[in-house]
Structure formats: structure tokens, C-alpha cells
């Protein structure tokens, strides 16, 4: 019992720390989790960690949160998952709460408004670069189905303004059908 409490406490401190100091999104935090829990604490085997990361990436939601849930659950069941979620969410929750208090005053300042406007162009460029890299990978895979899905989803979202929830549901269904057909072919 005391041992479990110790694990939970350590889990909480680690996830809190990782979440507060990780810039650059989910993939970075997952790498750091591997360093901490596999290389430092020896709590999880390397191979298993890879599968846990795959689970975190395949479930919906933020990868950092999913990674915390899956690692916490593996180490200490439901309580472990809860503790890691709280640890992961506290830092962004506090930081954004603080920022939102000052946001309106900030926005009215001429200089800051100019900086934010310039940064909007910068963010659009960052997203364009990300899309280019991801899209390049899909086109190079030479999978006709994937390219058609990409083009179709783009038309639906950008030109026809279809609710993205429906696009996701449609692609989930297409994925189920493609996987079932693929498995039947492999068996035949």
C-alpha cells in the first residue's frame, strides 16, 4: 500500500514536471516520458513503451494527455491514470488562466497588437509547413485511396464547409471497411 502511494506520488510529480517544461507538442513529451519511465525508473520495458506510445497516438485527443493516461494506467491502474491526468493538465490550465486574464489588456496595446498580427502570419506559415510535410508523406506513399481521401476531405472542409466531425466519422467508417476488405483478401 505504501509502495503504491509512493508510485502514485512519483507519477504525479513526473507528469507535472514533464507537462510544465515540454514545449513543442505531444511527440516531444512522449519521448521524454520514455526517458523518464524506461531509462530512469525502469518501470516499463522499452518494447512495451513503444506500444503504449502507439496507443496514445491512435486514440483521439491530445497525445501528451493520452500518453500520461496510458502510462499511469499501466503502472497503477485507474488511480494511476487519474493522477497522471491531473499532473499533466495543471500546468497548461494555470498558464492559460493567467494569460487569459491579461489577454484583453494586452490586445489593446498598439505594439502587442502589431506583434500578434505578425505572429498570425507566422503561425499560418508554420501550419503550411506542417501540412506540406505531412501531405508529402501521404503522396509519396503512392496509396491511391489515401490521396483520394485527402483530396475529398479538403474539398469537403474548405470548399463546401462540411462540419469536420462528419468528415472524421466518414473516414472512420472508410477505415473499418478498408481494413475488413484487406483482411479478407489476406485470408483468401
Amino acid at each position: 500500500m505504501k509502495n503504491k502511494k509512493k508510485v502514485l506520488f512519483k507519477l504525479f510529480v513526473s507528469t507535472l514536471y514533464l507537462s510544465a517544461f515540454t514545449f513543442g507538442g505531444g511527440y516531444v513529451i512522449v519521448t521524454l516520458m520514455k526517458k523518464k519511465f524506461v531509462d530512469e525508473y525502469y518501470w516499463i520495458e522499452e518494447d512495451e513503451m513503444l506500444d503504449l506510445v502507439a496507443i496514445a497516438q491512435s486514440a483521439p485527443g491530445a497525445i501528451a494527455v493520452n500518453g500520461a493516461i496510458v502510462v499511469g494506467y499501466k503502472l497503477a491502474g485507474f488511480a494511476g491514470a487519474l493522477v497522471s491526468i491531473v499532473g499533466t493538465v495543471i500546468p497548461p490550465f494555470l498558464i492559460i488562466s493567467l494569460i487569459s486574464l491579461f489577454y484583453n489588456a494586452f490586445r489593446e496595446n498598439f505594439l502587442i497588437a502589431q506583434i500578434l498580427e505578425g505572429m498570425q502570419a507566422g503561425v499560418a506559415a508554420v501550419i503550411a509547413a506542417v501540412v506540406y510535410e505531412m501531405g508529402e508523406g501521404i503522396v509519396q506513399s503512392r496509396n491511391t485511396g489515401s490521396v483520394i481521401i485527402m483530396a475529398g476531405a479538403f474539398l469537403a472542409a474548405c470548399v463546401f464547409g462540411v462540419n469536420v466531425v462528419y468528415i472524421v466519422i466518414a473516414c472512420l467508417l472508410i477505415g473499418v471497411i478498408r481494413t475488413l476488405i484487406g483482411e479478407r483478401r489476406r485470408k483468401a
Binding site: I127, M134, S146, I149, M150, F154, C158, G175, V176, R178
Partner: peptide, 24 residues
């Protein structure tokens, strides 16, 4: 996790397209 990976393979291209749309 075969089924899961299969479903995700179909979802990924759509995600790229939707990110592009939001960026625009």
C-alpha cells in the same frame, strides 16, 4: 492492434486536409 492501425491509415490523410483548411 491491426484493426486500429488500419482505421488510422484512412484517417490520417483526412486529418492533413482538415489542418490545411484551418490554416487557410
Amino acid at each position: 492492434m491491426n484493426m486500429l492501425q488500419g482505421i488510422l491509415a484512412s484517417l490520417r490523410p483526412a486529418v492533413v486536409a482538415m489542418i490545411a483548411s484551418a490554416g487557410i
